[in-house]
């Protein structure tokens, strides 16, 4: 099979579903007030795109997602590194972090609204908190899982700590870090959707909630589809990055 065929085969099933959906809608088997036809959703898409409303909301949501991810991810990564490399740091913070980890971060929504209102901070806080743990836990696991024989080898050859980190420890921890990254990307969208649905004055979640008020079911379905696409986009990006940096890994050699 050619590379193109292999890449496009994954899109065959969604395409079939959409076609069947359209056919069933037109034949009257699916009522328009339950689930609008794909063509109606496409029309809504076109209308919102022309008005600029759609792009603005996508932009707002993406910005929140990425900013929250950057904050939570970098703190999680830094703490994962610190606790993986330093026993003292781990002894001091890991127990606390493991306790906090067991609180579902979405359970904090009422508290977060009390603290921040429905401003940007509330959403950033929730997304950051959500992505923090998968990144933290997997970075820590990755570093602890680095083969001690390789670390000893690096020391024997006179690698200084910085060099040892860049050449042995970080590359060794990378597969686990990527697992955390992909997991965190999923949590990032999930958290944002919930946060925007509950309290927001812009963004995709807000757009969907507004549409619900006015019974614009095509816009609601459109928002859901866009979330799916954005999630897929983030995952594709992570995969691409993984492929590039883990080319040495037997799992990525074809």
């Amino acid at each position: 099979m050619t590379a193109l065929a292999r890449n496009s085969i994954g899109w065959l099933l969604p395409l079939t579903i959409i076609l069947a959906w359209e056919a069933l809608s037109r034949a009257g088997f699916i009522a328009a007030n339950v689930l609008p036809a794909p063509s109606a959703v496409a029309a809504a898409f076109w209308k919102l795109l022309l008005s600029g409303e759609l792009l603005r909301n996508i932009w707002v949501s993406s910005w929140r997602a990425l900013a929250g991810f950057a904050i939570g991810g970098s703190i999680g990564f830094a703490l994962g590194l610190a606790n993986g490399l330093s026993r003292l740091s781990r002894d001091m913070t890991d127990t606390t972090l493991q306790m906090v980890r067991n609180i579902p971060h979405l359970a904090l929504i009422p508290l977060v609204i009390l603290w921040f209102g429905i401003g940007e901070e509330a959403k950033l806080f929730l997304v950051a908190l959500g992505v923090f743990f998968p990144i933290y836990v997997n970075t820590l696991l990755g570093i602890q899982g680095v083969d001690p024989q390789l670390v000893e080898m690096g020391r024997i050859y006179g690698m200084k700590p910085a060099r040892l980190f860049w050449r042995v420890i970080l590359p060794g921890a990378l597969p686990a870090i990527f697992t955390g990254l992909r997991y965190a990307l999923g949590i990032m969208w999930l958290t944002l959707i919930v946060a925007e649905t509950i309290s927001a004055s812009s963004g995709l979640g807000y757009m969907a909630m507004q549409a619900r008020e006015f019974l614009m079911i095509d816009v609601v379905v459109l928002s859901i589809l866009i979330y799916a696409l954005l999630g897929k986009l983030a995952d594709t990006f992570a995969r691409l990055l993984e492929r590039r940096t883990l080319a040495w890994h037997p799992a990525f050699q074809t």
């Binding site: 024989q149 390789l150 000893e152 080898m153 690096g154 024997i156 050859y157 006179g158 690698m159 060099r163 050449r167 042995v168 590359p171 060794g172 990378l174 883990l246 040495w248 890994h249």
Partner: peptide
């Protein structure tokens, strides 16, 4: 003094030639 072990202890993420240059660290 260099030591060689029963396991090769190569860095899986470094090409063969870059594994050898590890021996020239410093």
């Amino acid at each position: 003094t260099r030591i060689m072990f029963q396991e090769p202890r190569l860095l899986p993420w470094a090409r063969v030639v870059d594994n050898v240059t590890v021996g020239l660290t410093g």
